[in-house]
Design a protein around this nucleic acid. Structure first.
Lengths: 213, 213
DNA sequence: TTGTGAAAGTTATAACTTTCACAAGCGAAT
DNA sequence: ATTCGCTTGTGAAAGTTATAACTTTCACAA
């Protein structure tokens, strides 16, 4: 794999995650090699762009045969930084938070939910999979003690700003914001990635409309 | 608004949804006009591209002042096809499904969840907000009777294929697939939009890695 | 050893996107 | 009415991305 770090756009990164998903799927079918044309049909992309993406990172296959699946998974993982375990905490142990912790592929991404926080006393002390729920009051002490860098936010809109402002940017470096509150891409040097579930429905809405034109 | 339908790429569509989210937020602060530079800082985009996007669709502002928020919301809604109510059903009334139905901005997108389906007898008959949960056996009859075009899939991985194959493509035109199963972008003429929650974590993972280089 | 088929790797180009810089125009104030 | 400040709208240039077409190389079999 090439070592120099050229700028990679988010489109490319998103494609890499698609490849990864596809590769993990094909791997568990017992295959060891995969052709670019195979990834192509599975992901709905042209095979040429897949080969180009891979070559760009110095990930090579075997001409006439295809790519080694295990090797590919390893390399893409390395590019995305999935090779190191990242401790994260979840804030907001509602339906969405619970769903995320239980989501099948998240353990593959090497995200380790070491704690969840909520202000609902019925939930405090309970578990979601292997993750314990604590009172939200304890969050900053916990972050400091465990040097948490990543926070997943799945709280109600009304709570969001207060919590974001309270997070100690000495430790927290990234927030995955699943609330529908708009946060700036960077705040106090914390990288914020906004995810809006409604967005996907809106995109579908456009596609449906376009198709019936 | 321009009437001719040029091809619009998904990047642009996604930006439009960002504008919409921003506009709704600013609207509820009581403002009536907004500058492109304001949307710009909120969404983390250059103001020039916002103006370009809007002009492209024939949506114009007032020079020296900005854009009329209500008008902008209306126009973007029209472009995305949010102006018409779309009846949808949810399959899989687990945490993720529940979270989606309750997600704040989804009603804005004019998606109307008229029914949910699950195979867990404890859930059948219960409600999520205003949406009743039915037995999954009844799904095809329901789709036929109510001419449902959009299905939201939030079932376990093991159930996914069986359900997708069983959906009647005479009625169903779009599937929003939140399971982590890879589905092709189109199947039996049904448009499929895959959403993988793990993807967002993987993207964040890359960003975090990049920042520490 | 050599020939062949298949798929990777590469290059050139077309298509698309973003950005910049500035002209144009609106509205408020004088 | 005129000026001034402000922000939109846009054309051209720069930058980026995707695609098709082409070349190379590998593995296997004859």
């Amino acid at each position: 794999m090439k070592n120099f770090q050229e700028k990679i756009s988010e489109v490319v990164i998103r494609r890499l995650t698609d490849y990864l998903r596809c590769l993990n799927y094909v791997k568990q079918e017992g295959k060891t090699l995969i052709k670019s044309s195979n990834i192509s049909t599975k992901c709905g992309l042209k095979s040429s762009i897949i080969r180009k993406d891979l070559a760009r990172f110095g990930v090579y296959g075997i001409k006439g045969k295809g790519y080694d699946i295990d090797e590919l998974i390893k390399q893409i993982g390395k590019i995305l930084g999935l090779d190191k375990t990242k401790n994260v905490v979840l804030i907001g142990a509602g339906n969405l938070g619970t769903a995320i912790i239980k989501y099948p592929r998240i353990k593959n991404a090497n995200f380790n939910f070491i704690a969840a926080f909520d202000n609902n006393s019925d939930k405090i002390g309970k578990m979601i999979n292997d993750t314990q729920i604590y009172s939200i009051d304890k969050i900053n002490k916990f972050i400091k003690k465990n040097k948490i860098e990543i926070v997943l936010l799945t709280v109600p809109v009304s709570e969001t700003m207060k919590i974001v402002d309270s997070l100690d940017s000495k430790f927290v470096k990234g927030i995955l914001n699943f609330t529908s509150v708009i946060l700036p891409p960077k705040k106090n040097n914390i990288f914020i990635h906004n995810i809006d579930l409604a967005k996907e429905l809106e995109v579908l809405s456009y596609c449906m409309k376009k198709c019936t034109l």
